[in-house]
Design a protein around this nucleic acid. Structure first.
Lengths: 202, 202
DNA sequence: AAAGTTTGGTAACCGACGGTAACCAAAGTG
DNA sequence: CACTTTGGTTACCGTCGGTTACCAAACTTT
């Protein structure tokens, strides 16, 4: 199987189609809600029949999981990028990463990440969901530990507990936020993150 | 229509049956998940047919809403009771109320309150959901204001924002908590509330 | 007490939707 | 040029939320 430039391999074509399905589903789930989007609607928008989708996903739930993974990867990437921003203290990097996290979570096609997923988890899906979540958690715990080490955060904080509390506060924004409000995501992020971090600053 | 003791009126009987349906549904939704509980299952457990339920609820969604209201009322009642606990400062009352809130939220039949509800809201349902949520919010904002007034909380905190941040942190526990863990709800509550409040103490 | 009327239930059914089976056309392969 | 593989279609099934027609018991009226 050669990979001549401009002539995608069969595998690439197949993968591209699968991603198209996930992208389309992601958009519809985000705006209309998982429950309200029949597979027929997704198939119709892609110009195929429902049964064709089953060449690429094993179930509607599996499709949701793939959407979830894409969204989580985007979230993780945005946080990692924010972590690389040069700044004086670890606390400052944490602040930037958290604000980025909040802004990303308020995207229309990200809202279902925390909303729709949980009740629909099949036992087998829980592992992959947990993996993404643990990744996020470990990123923030690492930043918290850095903050303890460089003295910009309280020495007596428990990174595990603090990560739970802070992520709770910011995730809650993603659940409560609706684009109709007057405040811009960036303003909300700054205010919430500032309050959520205050108790941990040295 | 007389109300002779021991002889419940028709209205009382009807109401009692409706509450039985809600109680049964609440339990099943909480343990098995809304999506996984067919109305037939609820009806069977009550010894009737599915169609009989429609004498008391207008739809499965309506049934979920009634479960939600019962749960929220219980939550509100537990917080109000905690607020009445005599204590030296408003901050202390707030701490007690928050811990009670967390413990109540970790009840098995309360977990679906934040998990299953949101994606399933019909436009008409949103108002009643919002009412309960606003009630909770106003209780905590009042306590925060009391704390500012009696000097036990920082004078420069914004009650609206602080209530959002703190409730986010504690609600997140309800989402993340699973009874399988080793820690008792009361311990978790104490730790989380302590961290979440730290930034607001005077 | 007999004749309506209301109440609360059942059985049977409908439509939507997730998922599957049988089949088929076109592209790839020896 | 047979032959397999791939990716799609049509037609169908089972489940489940919701509705309709009907019925029995209780309550009301005269």
């Amino acid at each position: 199987m050669k990979a001549i430039s401009g002539f995608p391999t069969k595998q690439e074509l197949r993968d591209h189609k699968r991603r198209e399905i996930v992208r389309c589903a992601s958009e519809k789930f985000g705006t209309e809600g998982y429950e309200n989007v029949p597979l027929d609607a997704i198939a119709a928008e892609l110009g195929v029949t429902k049964a064709a989708l089953y060449n690429y996903v094993s179930s509607k739930n599996d499709l949701l999981m793939q959407c979830y993974e894409v969204g989580m990867d985007r979230l993780i990437a945005s946080v990692e990028q924010a972590m690389d921003t040069p700044s004086d203290t670890a606390a400052e990097r944490l602040r930037i990463a958290l604000e980025t996290y909040v802004v990303t979570m308020t995207r229309k096609d990200m809202q279902y990440l925390w909303n729709d997923i949980r009740p629909l988890l099949a036992p087998g899906d829980k592992r992959s969901v947990q993996t993404s979540r643990d990744k996020i958690d470990s990123l923030f715990r690492a930043m918290l530990q850095d903050g303890i080490d460089d003295g910009s955060l309280r020495a007596d904080l428990d990174p595990k507990l603090a990560s739970l509390v802070i992520l709770g506060a910011v995730n809650w924004v993603g659940i409560w936020f609706r684009a109709s409000g007057s405040k811009k995501p960036q303003e909300i992020a700054r205010a919430v993150v500032s309050d959520a971090m205050r108790g941990y600053l040295a």
